[in-house]
């Protein structure tokens, strides 16, 4: 919905937003407008209050948004994958202790404190999901796409992973085991995709450009370099 109201601070809206937050029944006393159609204004109002109370700093807000829009994303994970493809020692460390190997790049922190990396092989295909929430390894992949957070993906990935993968254009052969990892606790996962054929002469840096977010979630494989025709 597109709103063009004045964004002034004295803009008031009539929804009764929770003046009765008792311990036994909370935050459902507004029985309509749970999704306010003026959410941009309500977020702005809350931000203004918090800044005015000196609880948050507007510059710190900008910094977090900028970090996830411009710096923290799947390029991080792609570097980890490319390193594992060219350096067998790193690959071994990565699969044995994902946290410490990813720590060599500095890609730890919120929602990436404890990492396990699972490797795709000719016998096993791994797929990541968080059925209860939308847990995702932020430092290596950034914030998750909408489809990963959708009810359809969270519901279906566990009961019909092969159909889900087919929807993403990936047909997993019957003799390959599909392993679905539901990150229900505090460990976050990353798929180590298979290195595509025809990349023997590529550098680590070049290889990293081939690695996609989807391949590290397990809904895709890594395609050979473009122009290959396959």
């Amino acid at each position: 919905m597109d709103h063009t109201h004045d964004h002034g601070h004295d803009h008031t809206h009539g929804h009764d937003h929770g003046h009765d937050h008792g311990h036994d029944h909370h935050h459902h006393d507004h029985d309509h407008q749970v999704v306010p159609d003026d959410i941009a204004l309500r977020v702005k109002a809350l931000e203004s209050v918090l800044v005015e109370k000196e609880m948050v700093d507007a510059a710190a807000l900008d910094e977090i948004v900028d970090a996830f829009e411009n710096r923290i994303g799947p390029r991080n994970g792609a570097q980890v994958v490319a390193r594992a493809w060219v350096d067998p020692g790193f690959r071994e460390r990565l699969l044995a202790d994902g946290t410490s190997a990813i720590g060599e790049f500095g890609y730890l922190g919120g929602q990436g404190e404890h990492m396990k990396v699972v490797a795709n092989t000719s016998k096993v295909h791994n797929l990541l999901v968080c059925t209860l929430c939308s847990c995702y390894p932020w430092p290596t992949l950034g914030l998750p796409p909408v489809w990963y957070k959708s009810a359809a993906y969270r519901a279906r990935a566990v009961i019909e992973p092969r159909e889900v993968l087919r929807e993403f254009g990936l047909e997993v052969p019957e003799d390959v085991e599909v392993r679905v990892w539901d990150s229900t606790a505090e460990i976050r996962y990353l798929v180590l995709p298979e290195r595509p054929a025809g990349t023997e002469d590529m550098s680590e840096e070049e290889l990293a450009t081939l690695v996609t977010r989807d391949s590290m979630v397990g809904v895709a494989t890594v395609a050979p370099p473009s122009g290959d025709g396959s």
């Binding site: 702005k44 109002a45 203004s48 209050v49 005015e52 109370k53």
Partner: peptide
């Protein structure tokens, strides 16, 4: 934050 502050958009 109080409900009044929330509605008014000011502390």
């Amino acid at each position: 934050v109080t409900g009044t502050e929330f509605e008014a958009g000011r502390a």
